[in-house]
Write a protein that binds this DNA or RNA. Structure first.
Lengths: 212, 212
DNA sequence: CTAACCTTTGTCCATTCGGTCAAAATTTGC
DNA sequence: GCAAATTTTGACCGAATGGACAAAGGTTAG
């Protein structure tokens, strides 16, 4: 009778909650929070609206659960950025992983983008807390690389921003990317092209080596 | 009695339509199309809802007018990208202009981002037509620079994407940028920092010149 | 088999929202 | 100054939407 609280319960609860979250990711990432209706999500999950509301009391609860789960997987690549290998190799690996995420999890990227675009009403504390701490930490590592002359001296925070921006662009602005590339270049190969280009950009920039 | 059709009319019509469009830009860019209500826009414009609807028959008409006006100014920097000056100077200028637009017109950037994120339901034809044509044209110019050895050989389309992504990031993801930079580095100076960093990135990349 | 619990659904409700309409208020052309 | 046209508003409407609820339908443990 009472809807399930924080702690998970039966097998069927696990399954249905999972089902709902996946459906909600599909819907929210395509239409935003306010643009999505509970009915749409229920439809996508193959159940009735009251049934869905049995598992998540409010629309916002779904959204919240989705964001919470998202953030862990979303920041995983950055967490992996480590001080062990060669700096340029580390950065190249990070860029590649982020681009793969944009390719394989575009819905997650768009959900996140939607939230930030709207002013991050539900995750501002996380941005100022957990995320800032993580980025500061990685920025320190990057600064170390600069001190050692392994990479050029520049702003570590903006470096991270530029990696985020360029990779997530292929998920968030996918429609535009495909429209501009056209049917030929816009096919599945576009992510390989992007990977090649971004590696070139981040390692060597655009100025020819030989010339001035 | 009859609401104004396509052709503009009286002085007061001009003024009020302008007022409404500005208010709508504020609201739409902050909440997206479906997240915004006519009442909100009317409030922001300091008039009653029916009065607003006297100037724009439907909510979508406001949005459409807004997008249409936006696109001209939004693509202006790219149109200016020309074959006259030094290629690297041209690109640097383009990046700087785009970043200035992100700083000075963040609402426009977010309105556009919102539209693309939702799958560009209202501007797909423009993307596949006008925008693609323009980008193809500029890509050809860039390819010429590459042939002349003025800039490194790489993918011109993805080059343009990366400029869009890195600059618009500072408007669209402003909340995140400021949260991560914190109160100190996140102040007004962040755009100068970004400009310096991006110039470094696009010209020389991250690999140190001297070392391997 | 059955009692307790879990899951599902049809129905209903209050609110919000886009939009209409007729009448009142104001501006404009002469 | 006045008639015609334009602008503004209060009241209203139907549809969509988030959510409540009780009753019906299944599941599970003993």
């Amino acid at each position: 009778m009472t809807p399930p609280a924080a702690l998970k319960r039966t097998r069927i609860q696990q399954e249905k909650r999972e089902l709902i979250l996946d459906a909600a990711l599909e819907v929210f990432s395509a239409h935003g929070f306010r643009g999505s209706t509970i009915d749409q999500i229920a439809d996508a999950a193959g159940m009735s609206k009251p049934n869905l509301l049995y598992y998540f009391r409010r629309k916002e609860d779904i959204h919240e659960a989705l964001l919470q789960r998202l953030l862990d997987t979303w920041l995983a690549p950055l967490r992996e950025l480590d001080n062990v290998g060669d700096p340029l190799t580390e950065l190249r690996g990070y860029i590649r992983r982020k681009l793969e995420m944009a390719r394989d999890y575009p819905r997650e990227s768009r959900l996140f983008a939607n939230e930030i675009l709207q002013g991050a009403p539900r995750i501002t504390p996380m941005l100022e807390g957990e995320l800032k701490t993580l980025v500061d930490e990685k920025a320190e590592i990057i600064r170390g690389w600069m001190r050692d002359g392994k990479i050029v001296r520049t702003d570590p925070w903006h470096l991270i921003f530029s990696i985020w921006a360029t990779t997530q662009h292929y998920a968030d602005f996918d429609v535009q990317v495909r429209a501009v590339l056209g049917p030929n270049r816009g096919g599945e190969g576009r992510f390989e092209d992007a990977a090649r280009y971004l590696e070139q950009l981040f390692l060597d920039g655009l100025k020819p080596r030989a010339a001035s």
